[in-house]
Design a protein around this nucleic acid. Structure first.
Lengths: 149, 149
DNA sequence: CAAAATCCATTGGTATACATACAAGTTTGT
DNA sequence: ACAAACTTGTATGTATACCAATGGATTTTG
């Protein structure tokens, strides 16, 4: 057997490694399933685009980078997302008179309408994603997820 | 207040929508943190590349698509991953004599060596990712994650 | 007040990730 | 045996996602 002094030799660690039970792998698969659920319920927007639009509707008017921070996307990522939302005329941008560095973003009327019309589906997505768990498990899962953030 | 007969009108659903407590958003953030932990402990490989290499070391010799299924990646994705692992000389491919469509993949000696040398770090990554939870919570979290798959 | 440190948006590069389409090879149903 | 259905690897296109670098604007500091 293995020596008791060292934690685990490389080859022992390799022998004991099982991808299918690792957090990272399980989280990736759980997320894959969630994305599939999302796509089935909301086809107009990707999950990321919906997150950006929802947060923008919640905040009203913010700069691009600020919206990125609020939605956990870096500057490069949020730019692409906003570009696509602008192409769809769901978001409008204007220079911030108080700070010439900033692009002030606001949802358009169409953006608001779309958000309101798909919000029920968004609730359903959360419900469907968590459907394999009973109610107590759902609560615990969300609690633990938040702790991991 | 709201009518009791309909579940939730669009605008009510929109008003009650909070991105920060949605499963999808929380999973994305938890995953972001995991990826950061991973990158800090293993810089030679991306999480996806490591998953493919680890699974290939476990299975010995499989076709590209079969490895994709075993690691939950579609054909297009696993191709790119294997291409990059081949560029690094960690994986070798040869035609399958039994099925001319298949590329038979095998880890190279360098691939085995790298896998064994980073396997301890992989265990550490799982540990660090779950560090915000106590032991009981970690067990529950992994259990619930598996149920969601 | 001027220099340093920050912040902002943008760009370029790399790496997933999935959908779709395709050609070549294999298996099935009849 | 042979056409239909399926599988495999590949290619293309779109959408995240992050890092690093850049240039312009603002704030902090010395």
């Amino acid at each position: 057997m293995t020596s008791k002094t060292s934690p685990l030799s490389p080859s022992d660690a390799a022998a004991g490694y099982c991808l299918d039970t690792q957090v990272g792998f399980l989280m990736r698969r759980a997320n894959q399933r969630h994305l599939a659920v999302f796509a089935e319920e909301i086809s107009d927007l990707t999950p990321t685009q919906f997150a950006a639009l929802a947060k923008l509707c919640e905040l009203g008017a913010v700069s691009q980078n600020a919206l990125g921070r609020a939605t956990a996307m870096d500057g490069a990522t949020i730019k692409g997302v906003i570009d696509r939302l602008r192409t769809k005329s769901l978001v409008a941008s204007s220079p911030d008179p108080n700070d010439q560095r900033c692009l002030l973003l606001k949802p358009t009327a169409a953006g608001w309408d779309l958000f309101e019309s798909v919000a029920p589906a968004a609730h359903q997505i959360t419900k469907d994603t968590l459907a394999p768990l009973n109610e107590a498990e759902q609560t615990i899962f969300l609690l633990l997820l938040e702790k991991l953030t």
